[in-house]
Design a protein around this nucleic acid. Sequence first.
DNA 1: TTCCGATTGAATGTATACAAATGAATTTAT
DNA 2: ATAAATTCATTTGTATACATTCAATCGGAA
Lengths: 137, 137
Amino acid sequence: MNYELDDQVGFVLRKAYQRHLTIFAEHIAGELTAMQFSTLFRLVRADGPISQNALGRMVAMDAATTKGVVSRLEARGLIRMEQDLVDRRRYLLSATPEGHALVQEVMPRMERVSADTLAPLNAREQKTLLKLLQRLC
Amino acid sequence: MNYELDDQVGFVLRKAYQRHLTIFAEHIAGELTAMQFSTLFRLVRADGPISQNALGRMVAMDAATTKGVVSRLEARGLIRMEQDLVDRRRYLLSATPEGHALVQEVMPRMERVSADTLAPLNAREQKTLLKLLQRLC
DNA sequence: TTCCGATTGAATGTATACAAATGAATTTAT
DNA sequence: ATAAATTCATTTGTATACATTCAATCGGAA
């Protein structure tokens, strides 16, 4: 059986994502983790407040993981939670002015992160990779 | 600024890997995690015993993570650790007969995992994706 | 209107993942 | 031969990630 670990999608996907996270950390330093950025970004871009679970789904996180990320963002004053008056199980989440400001400040560097991750490929290859990856989800 | 989360490599890489892990879990059930398989597989394929850190590097895990994975595999009797007589900092790791047997048993299903992950793409696209991903690492 | 199924958020337990610090052992450069 | 640098394994602390379980609540069917 000629099963080579380095030729398996899963193994290479993990290594590629790992490298991406390293590049992310280099650019964003200690301000935000990748998941914290994605979560905060979704909230900033949203037009209205969103429930915790709904936000998690928008970033592809399960409820338990979402809880942790949201708590840390809230503890840092980047997002605000308030009880939903209609459905009392829910919290309505929204980005604070500080949250908006941080996303604004970090935005330009985020494009560099994506560019650096894709740097080994030329423009056409980058587009191809993105399209193929999107079809895997 | 037209920054779309769903068009960023990092975000899509994560979702693709996430889906892969789901497929993995469906096929391999509670026997091994993806990282445990990779680690054990490397050990089974190796011709001689390997130090803990060296094994970690072969699977792209840092030392702290490796420690956890190795401990769990050892606790289950799938790998064996013995002091290196030459270099007394090291442990020499090797797969036990049980470890070899488990890899043997799981192997056929691993090919299905990779195939299922890549299922949305045709044969040529699969090759392309793999090549592009490998160049990102 | 009452009651049952589905949803929401929370909590717990296990498994990566990595940074940073530590102590012991080994290698290198002088 | 010895000081400096490196390597190895470990530990601690923080952050995902997901399965499972639970209580509260909602919404629709009877």
